[in-house]
């Protein structure tokens, strides 16, 4: 089956399980079309591997439209590949040239252990969220939605923080494997809304404590996460979280 005319050399991280050692394995792929997405190129490769009775490469993906946050590859040393503002599944092969060598590795962080090949365990994010990433309101207890006017600017800012897809590219990119951008986006989303202010104190405290317990590094403000975040989550969120955290502890 022919698709297009690009021939590439892929070097892909293969690792059978968390306990075993992994290494980069070289795979040539042929006849790749520039219209394919990066993951479709992986489909082609996997199809080849299956036809040779080898184990296909395991990688996380689901929506393939940049919103679920499943896909997670470090491509040639950049989380989600060479383009900014998109996820791995939104990357297309026209961003590469015929003859290129592409190195693909999983997210690397103590807190994100490899499960298999390019798949990592991101449940640390879940645990952080369960420590305070919510407003404690039970179903059915809410007042009419328009009883609480919220300035458009605040709602928009909150939305911008809430747009985080929890992919973990920030952690993968940060030289310290810090989760500050993700956690601060969560904290900010609520801190910016009047509904969220009530629990602001406990929220930031508990979420930061869990973040530290998970073994993420700290932020030395290099700003790389903001650049590589597919959803453009701003460093302002980290500043806001620092502020909130400081204020809470000075009380």
């Amino acid at each position: 089956m022919s698709h297009g005319n690009m021939n590439l050399t892929l070097k892909i991280w293969r690792q059978n399980s968390a306990k075993e050692q992994g290494q980069l394995v070289t795979y040539p792929v042929k006849d790749i079309s520039p219209d394919m997405s990066f993951l479709e190129m992986f489909d082609v490769l996997n199809e080849q591997l299956v036809s040779k009775n080898e184990n296909p490469i395991v990688f996380d993906h689901d929506c393939r439209e940049g919103i679920c946050g499943m896909c997670s590859m470090v491509i040639n040393g950049r989380a989600h590949g060479p383009k900014t503002g998109i996820t791995t599944c939104q990357l297309h092969m026209r961003s590469f040239k015929d003859g290129d060598t592409i190195v693909v590795e999983p997210w690397r962080a103590q807190a994100f252990p490899v499960i298999k090949d390019l798949t990592v365990d991101r449940t640390a994010f879940e645990r952080i969220q369960s420590k305070g990433g919510f407003i404690s309101v039970n179903t059915g207890t809410a007042q009419d939605a328009n009883c609480l006017p919220i300035a458009k600017g605040d709602a928009d800012a909150s939305f911008n923080a809430a747009a985080c897809i929890g992919c973990g590219a920030c952690v993968a990119t940060c030289k310290n494997a810090s989760a500050m951008l993700f956690v601060s986006a969560k904290v900010s989303q609520f801190a910016l809304l009047p509904q969220g202010k009530i629990e602001a104190t406990v929220r930031v405290k508990n979420m930061v404590a869990q973040m530290d317990a998970e073994g993420f590094g700290s932020c030395t403000n290099t700003g790389a996460c903001e650049v590589e975040c597919p959803k453009g989550i701003s460093l302002e969120n980290i500043a806001r979280m620092n502020r909130e955290y400081f204020a809470v502890n000075m009380k």
Binding site: F134, I135, V137, T139, G140, T141, A142, Q143, D144, A145, N146, L148, P149, I150, A151, K152, A155, D156, S158, F159, A162, Q189, F190, L193, Q195, G196
Partner: peptide
């Protein structure tokens, strides 16, 4: 209608007008 109330109470940032209303 209850859904919208519930979501707003949870902090879902639905779009708003300049006057602060949904």
């Amino acid at each position: 209608n209850n859904i919208i109330d519930q979501c707003v109470a949870q902090g879902v940032p639905l779009a708003r007008e300049y006057g602060g209303m949904l």
